[in-house]
Design a protein around this nucleic acid. Sequence first.
DNA 1: ATTTGTGAACGCATTCACAGCT
DNA 2: AGCTGTGAATGCGTTCACAAAT
Lengths: 212, 212
Amino acid sequence: MSDDQARIPEATTRRLSLYLRVLADLERNGADTVSSRGIADLCRLNPAQVRKDLSRFGAFGVRGVGYDVAELRQIVAGLLGVDTDSRVVIVGAGNLGQALADYPGFHGGGFEVVALFDVREEIVGTMSRRGHPVHHIDELERIIRDADVRIGMVAVPAAKAAEVVERLVGGGVRGLVNFAPVRLDVPEGIAVRNVDLTVELESLSFFLRDRK
Amino acid sequence: MSDDQARIPEATTRRLSLYLRVLADLERNGADTVSSRGIADLCRLNPAQVRKDLSRFGAFGVRGVGYDVAELRQIVAGLLGVDTDSRVVIVGAGNLGQALADYPGFHGGGFEVVALFDVREEIVGTMSRRGHPVHHIDELERIIRDADVRIGMVAVPAAKAAEVVERLVGGGVRGLVNFAPVRLDVPEGIAVRNVDLTVELESLSFFLRDRK
DNA sequence: ATTTGTGAACGCATTCACAGCT
DNA sequence: AGCTGTGAATGCGTTCACAAAT
C-alpha cells in the first residue's frame, strides 16, 4: 500500500504522468479541488482507475470532497521524481535528436538536456536552435560523470544503437529512451522505454487496412 | 481464427510490426526458415506468444520445421497493410515534423509522406532536407482528398492539436499519430496512436527515483 | 449527498503443456 | 526428434460495487 521500491505496474506510472499534466492544468486554471471523476474525464479513463492508482501510494483524498489540486500535484510530482531535475543526454544530433533537445515539454518539467552527441565532425561544436551543445561522442562518458546524467535518449540509426547503449550504460546512465527501431539488450536494473515510430504506423495501418 | 475485421488485440498488431522487421532482416541475411523460438529471441518474447499471434490469422508454419521466412514476411506485410503504400501528411513543420518527414524508416516501408503543413508563412513553400514540401494549412483538406491520404501525424503544440485533428478528420484521414501532449477526442472509427515523450520520460523517472 | 478507498469480480493477454503433424 | 497450433491455466490490470468517511 505504501511506496516499496516498486511493485507498481508500468501502466500506473504512465497514467501518473497524465494525472500530473491535468493537475498542473487545473492548478493553472485556479481549481482548488478535483474528484477522481474530474481527473478521469480529462484523461479519458475510469474514475475507479484513478482512485486505485493513487491509493497505491497513500490516501490523499477527502471523502465527499475529492483531492486538493495543488497538494496532489506536488505529491504526484514527487512520486514521479520530477520535483528535482534529472539530467538527460541525447546521442545522435540529426533531425530527431535536435527536435528532442529543443522539445518545449522539457522546460520546467523535471528534465534538463545537458548535451547532444554525434560522430559527424561537421556538426560537433554547433548548437541546437535553443542552444544545446553538440559534443563529439568521445566526450560522452566524461560528461555523463561530470554532470551526473541519469537518462540517455538514443536517436541514432538502428545499426549504431547497440554500441551507443553500451557506452551510455557503461558511462553510468540508469534509464534509456530508445528511438531506434531495434529491441535493445540492456543489463538488469537499466530501464528502457522504446518509442518506435514504425510500430505506431504499422499497427495503425492494420486497423485501416480494410476500411474505405 | 481468421481475419474478421478486428477481434485482434492492439498488442498483437504491435508485435506483428516487430515480426515484420526481424523477418525482413532474416531474409536479407539469407535465412530460409525460422522457428517461433528464433523470432521470439530476436524480439525478446516468448515463443508461444509468437505462435499464438500468428495463429490468429492462419496456420503458416510447418510442424517440425518452422516458418518460411520469405513467405511469412509477405503474409505479415499483407496483414499490416504495408504491401501497398499509405499516404501520410504531417501537420506542424517544426523540428519534430521535419524529423518525422525525413525519418529513414519510411522509405520503402509502406508509407509515403505526401506533405507537411504549417501556418508560419516563413516556412510555407520550403522543403525538408529530403525534399518534402511544406504547404500552408489552408491546403490541408484539398491535398488529403487529391492524394487520398489515410494517416495524419500531429506535430503541433498541445493548444493547437484539437483544431488540427478536427481538420484532419474532416478532411478524410482515418488514422492519427499524435505527438502533442494531450489526449485527443476523436469520432468513433478513427484510430489514434499517442506518442507522448513526457509520459516516457516521467514514467522512466519514476523507476529511477530512489536508485543512486 | 457526495466521493473516497478497496475487496471482489471480471476480462484479457501471456504462458504452459501437450496433442498432432512432418 | 522437432516444432507448430491450441485448449487450459495462470497472471495481471481494469472495473464494479459498496462500506466508510465527511
